[in-house]
Amino acid sequence: MRTKIDARGLSCPQPVLMTLNEIKAGRASEIEILVDTDTSQENVSRAATTQGWKVADVIEESDGYQITIRIK
């Protein structure tokens, strides 16, 4: 299942917390996360990797990034 998180405008560490909570919930095999800063993009990608997930795609949008992470 693919789920979506909108973490735009939220400051550290909330985008990471939301991503990790979604990973731990165990319902998704693919998660799309929207963030608005480069810092959040790096932090979310790093956190996903440490959980054994793969950063499948990072698309730059006008108001930030769309990150797709996938379970390995």
Partner: peptide, 13 residues
Amino acid sequence: FLRKGYTLGRTQT
């Protein structure tokens, strides 16, 4: 607090 959902809300561009 962060674990319990503490947030100062979203910023706007």
